[in-house]
Design a protein around this nucleic acid. Structure first.
Length: 570
RNA sequence: CGGGGCGUAGCGCAGCCUGGUUAGCGCGCCUGCCUUGGGAGCAGGAGGCCGUAGGUUCGAAUCCUACCGCCCCGACCA
């Protein structure tokens, strides 16, 4: 492509709307332009990068035996009512009525549509297993879109759905996708990690997320330094460390704690450690108050709580709501004798003679024991894991890092096939529900994640497989015909060699062109200018490490071909 | 939705507090000259319902009210 004829509007200054690096660079490099909150136009060069990702995804999906199809973006509400998700999905599902007043929605995901296809078209075990996928634009009316392509409302996703005869067979399909995902992200040149995850609104029993490691990640993941264990913080199982109960249960006692509401203040005042205290947090589970007990130095993990309660929505209650629900001001709430639904973290159940709020302003209770002094509805793992906790698999040391979720694989089981009555006839003539799996990849997000992971202060540094162009020729010839025709010939030759080349033929000064080349992140830059005029040499500069090579035109072509194709084959 | 902030030329901003001529600056854009290995220089030029609506006032970008949009922090997720 000739730069002079391309819509490639680079910006010297960063638009004020952009905060994170990938968003800033994509705006500056002319990859995207915002239409409205969370909705972007992919400009030509941005689309080129997206296509690179799509093609890698497509190749690997096909290699794994999946078949591509394309489902509608507009979906009838009826299908969603069948699975109960029309209620459950919430405001993220954009709903509207068509001219016939039919309830419709924009597809945020396609389990319903694909299951409908399956029940209509797949009748026999002979059709199975099958894995169908699409690469399509999704719409989720996110509460707060942010970070450019990282969390848009409209985004491109690859979603795949597998159908199997049995749980065991579904496990195989799952593993196949898991392996394909590893290949995909490896080919994209990303540094990533597969982690155990919560299955969220999609539902299902078992899932892994693929996380690109980057500081701007929206998720925290815990990783074992010793074994292969890695999990989303939300999901990471806390392994209860046994404690020895040496002390005999003491007499419960009311003690005065004037004005001491916060855990630290109470502990300072009483001369105790936060680990000896149990705090009572009030959450609203679908609007209804629930008390949650955790040790004073722990944090409640809302996702675990949500799963335990089977709630669609969990929110921490504010001071007023706590008072309304219990009649106790925050800071003095406790489980003893309170009229509130209470659940406890497993750690609390193992504690003895602890301190809790006294359900009365300025009072706490000491020597409290679960079971003797109060009862709870459930005991479960409800707190956030910390790096002090042992690895749940091997007991090793854990560490945390930030991650961007670029892929998610789920074992769905028969939830959708049952609610939509999607069955096939098995060998024995019996009707059975499909055992399903679903597998998503955030295609547009990958481009953003790749930039988060590959940039410097000058701009983007694309991994070769994702680069919209692999070579940029900077022609500094001006009016010099010798140089111009050499640059032109190189352009033609490189294209003939199968490379994607951008020829900077603009009437601009050298510095201007170099800055743009750096910003765009094209892996190899060839400068044709003075040194070609003087001794017939061209200069290759590697974007990533700044290495410079002076070569003849023939060697330049050879060198680029070798280098680029080497990075494309895996 | 809760908390914070912002809407003035294509982009980045100043002006607003303390109302008063023709609304500025940098970048970009157009014309010409000049320059050509790291975002040059000179000269000329185009481009503004000051987010929208209402109010206060002799007079509003500036003060007041409402609305709309956008960004950042939390709940959501590929």
């Amino acid at each position: 492509m000739r730069y002079s004829q391309t819509l490639l509007p680079t910006l010297k200054e960063t638009p004020a709307e952009a905060e994170v690096i990938s968003h800033r660079l994509m705006l500056r490099a002319g990859f995207i332009r915002k239409l409205t909150a969370g909705v972007y136009t992919y400009m030509p060069i941005g689309l080129a990068a997206i296509r690179k990702v799509e093609n890698i995804v497509r190749e690997e999906m096909n290699r794994a035996g999946a078949q591509e199809l394309l489902m509608p973006m507009v979906q009838p509400a009826d299908l969603w009512v069948e699975t109960g998700r029309y209620e459950k999905y919430g405001p993220e599902l954009l709903r509207f009525r068509d001219r016939h007043d039919r309830e419709s929605c924009l597809g945020p995901t396609h389990e319903e549509v694909i299951t409908d296809i399956a029940r209509k078209e797949l009748h026999s075990y002979r059709n199975l297993p099958i894995n169908l996928y699409q690469i399509q634009t999704k719409f989720r009316d996110e509460i707060r879109p942010r970070f450019g392509l990282m969390r848009g409302r409209e985004f491109i996703m690859k979603d795949a759905y597998s159908f199997d005869v049995s749980d065991e067979a579904a496990g195989l399909s799952y593993q196949k996708m898991f392996d394909a995902y590893k290949r995909i992200f490896t080919r994209c040149g990303l540094s990533f990690r597969a982690v155990q995850a919560d299955s969220g609104a999609i539902g299902g029993s078992f899932s892994h997320e693929f996380m690109v490691l980057a500081d701007t990640g929206e998720d925290t993941i815990v990783v074992c330094k010793n074994c292969e264990y890695a999990a989303n913080m939300e999901k990471a199982v806390v392994k209860l460390v046994p404690v020895n109960h040496e002390a005999a249960p003491g007499q419960m006692e009311k003690i005065e704690t004037p004005g001491k509401r916060k855990v630290d203040a109470v502990c300072d005042f009483l001369g105790i450690e936060p680990r000896q205290l149990v705090k009572t947090m009030v959450f609203k589970a679908d609007g209804k108050p629930v008390g949650v007990l955790v040790r004073g130095d722990r944090e409640v993990e809302e996702v675990k709580l949500k799963n335990l309660l089977g709630a669609a929505d969990i929110e921490l209650a504010d001071d007023k709501e706590v008072f309304d629900a219990t009649g106790v001001p925050t800071g003095y709430l406790g489980p003893v004798g309170v009229d509130l639904r209470i659940v406890a973290d497993q750690e609390v159940a193992a504690m003895q003679n602890f301190y809790v709020g006294g359900n009365e302003k300025n009072y706490h209770l000491k020597n409290v024991n679960l079971g003797r002094d109060f009862q709870v509805e459930a005991v479960a793992d409800l707190r956030q894991i910390t790096t002090d906790d042992p690895c749940p698999e091997c007991g090793g040391k854990l560490e945390t890092t930030e991650g961007i979720e670029v892929g998610h694989v789920f074992k769905l089981g028969t939830g959708y096939s049952e609610s939509m009555n999607a069955t096939f006839q098995d060998k024995d003539g019996q009707s059975k529900h499909f055992v399903m799996g679903c597998y998503g990849i955030g295609v547009s997000r990958i481009v953003a994640a790749a930039i988060e992971q590959n940039h410097d202060d000058k701009g983007i540094i694309f991994p070769v497989p994702l680069a919209p162009y692999t070579v940029i020729i900077v022609n500094l010839g001006g009016s010099d015909e010798t140089i111009n025709s050499a640059a032109e010939k190189l352009y033609q030759d490189l294209m003939a060699a199968g490379l994607e080349v951008l020829l900077d033929d603009r009437d601009e000064r050298p510095g201007f062109k170099f800055k743009d080349a750096d910003l765009l992140g094209i892996p190899y830059r060839v400068t044709v200018g003075k040194s070609f005029k003087e001794n017939g040499m061209m200069e290759i500069k590697h974007r990533r490490d700044g290495v410079v090579e002076e070569l003849t035109p023939e060697d330049t072509i050879g060198r680029l071909k070798t280098a680029i194709f080497a990075q494309l084959t895996n």
